[in-house]
């Protein structure tokens, strides 16, 4: 089975290895997740495991969400995602998966929603350098400058990078090293950063990078 779980970003910190090397880690609260449904090739055309994480109040869940959770005797979930499988999954609906799944896993991919930056300029959004601070530059210090040639082709090329909405995007960070698995607190420690704010929901999968 391709291991995958849902979780929440707790925050970043650093821990010491025994030889004194400091490792920057992101702490994830990972699981326990309920298997809400198992997708099969016969019925759905693909194999996957549908997981749910973090209970939602029954009152604020829709009738459909309640019914879906009730089929496996679970509470309605706030975060539901599927983990695709290459082979038919060896889990049953209603089963609870914990972070111990990652005991044998060395590296993972993490998918989440990046921090929203709203309408951002080209310096923040695309890393442009802007114009000079002095030498006669007039109120144009963070501008993109020219967006292309003049009379020929007399239009702006497609795909020119411009200001616009930035962040709040689905982002996947691949091949993060698993530093520690702490089943007693449902914690997973990964080396490096993951997308999104603290408290944001994440999908963590065994990496498909070789």
């Amino acid at each position: 089975m391709r291991v995958g779980l849902l979780g929440r970003k707790v925050g970043m910190t650093q821990i010491y290895q025994e030889n004194g090397v400091v490792v920057p880690v992101t702490v994830l609260e990972c699981g326990p997740c309920v298997v809400l449904q198992v997708r099969t090739r016969d019925r759905d055309g693909y194999d996957a495991v549908q997981l749910g994480f973090d209970d939602k109040k029954r009152k604020s869940a829709s009738q459909a969400e309640r019914g879906h959770a009730k089929q496996v005797d679970a509470e309605p979930k706030r975060y539901i995602r599927e983990v695709r499988q290459e082979l038919p999954a060896d889990v049953a609906a209603g089963q609870t998966l914990t972070v111990e799944l990652f005991n044998e896993i060395k590296r993972v991919d993490v998918t989440g929603t990046s921090k929203g930056r709203g309408y951002a300029g080209v310096i923040k959004r695309h890393g442009f350098r802007g114009l000079r601070a002095t030498h006669g530059v007039k109120r144009m210090h963070r501008h993109p400058g020219s967006s292309g040639p003049s009379a020929d082709p007399a239009r702006t090329q497609k795909g020119i990078r411009k200001p616009g909405h930035y962040g709040h995007d689905r982002v996947t960070v691949r091949n993060l090293e698993v530093v520690r698995v702490d089943p007693s607190n449902n914690l997973l420690l990964l080396k490096g950063a993951v997308p999104g704010p603290n408290g944001g929901y994440l999908t963590i999968r065994q990496t498909n990078k070789v």
Partner: peptide, 14 residues
Amino acid sequence: MQNRLLDVVEKSTM
């Protein structure tokens, strides 16, 4: 609650 979990991790390395 978030901080409690971070504390757990930090304590373990302190």
